[in-house]
Design a protein around this nucleic acid. Structure first.
Ligand SMILES: [Mn+2]
Ligand SMILES: [Mn+2]
Ligand SMILES: [Zn+2]
Ligand SMILES: [Zn+2]
Lengths: 142, 142
DNA sequence: ATTATATATTATAATTATTCTAAACTGTTG
DNA sequence: CAACAGTTTAGAATAATTATAATATATAAT
């Protein structure tokens, strides 16, 4: 359980009590090689499958929002139907597959962050992100 | 009522009956100099203020979606809290003011559309749009 | 270790946004 | 002026999210 210890420290260091539920959610979210995108519903389902114990949906919401506020997750709104979270919290760009509703990270080889030549007076730029919408190459343009 | 005639033709030409409600919504949305962004709720409120007659919320939803499907409106998801529509249906970029939840169109002088160097196999690129999130220039980074 | 305190979890209710339904209404065609 | 399909409407239904308030837990204080 060295991973578990890690998560415990991580949570404590940001002022979050390392509860059983939060540690399990950490496990599901952060005990992986690659970052990924998820919806809260997907996450809740994953948890109830992967783990024998159930976590209340309200707790999943609370925890995801707490993790987001601490900077461990990023929220991404791309589609009015689904609200995504991203375990990759760095600034980055996305493909959005309109056929499958899947989000895919872009590497630097795909697209460079565009330069902003003018800003709005009195405001600070917090992020510049590119979204590329793709779909199957049929002639159904709608 | 020359504008009204115009809207009548526009609707007919796309197979939509020019009903009283649709014409009023056209008036509110398209009888302006500049394009703008709105939420369905804002639109419903605007209508009940600007006009003496009420339009059912379901009709506003129906009409906005019909107009979107006909290409007269564009849907923009940027914020999990609010779902926007845009009367500017061209491909373009946006500032999003995180203080006010306001969307602002970017001109070409602000940012150029980035080049996509690689695409996902078997998929067609439907749009490439940049989102610039801004907020007041205090040191409150959260 | 026991107790006290603040914080977190939970089931459920409440709220909000959106879609569905089915009856009434209206625009268009003949 | 029928007749008909398409449209609007109020209200019900659904879905996503947030609020509530009682219970449980983690940590700090004794
Ligand atoms: Mn929609
Ligand atoms: Mn949220
Ligand atoms: Zn991502
Ligand atoms: Zn716009």
């Amino acid at each position: 359980m060295s991973k578990n210890l890690e998560f415990t420290y991580k949570l404590r260091s940001s002022g979050l009590r390392p509860t059983r539920q939060r540690l399990k959610i950490c496990e599901v979210l952060f005990n992986r090689d690659k970052t990924f995108h998820f919806t809260i519903n997907d996450l809740a389902k994953d948890i109830s499958k992967q783990l024998n114990e159930k976590i209340s949906l309200a707790t999943v919401y609370n925890t995801v929002h707490a993790f987001k506020n601490k900077g461990y997750l990023k929220e991404i709104s791309i589609n009015s139907d689904k609200n995504y979270f991203d375990t990759n919290t760095t600034s980055h760009h996305h493909f959005f597959d309109q056929d499958t509703n899947e989000l895919i990270d872009c590497t630097d080889e795909v697209v460079e962050t565009p330069k902003i030549k003018k800003n709005i007076l009195g405001k600070k730029i917090n992020s510049v992100e590119v979204l590329i919408k793709v779909a199957t190459d049929n002639q159904n343009q709608k």
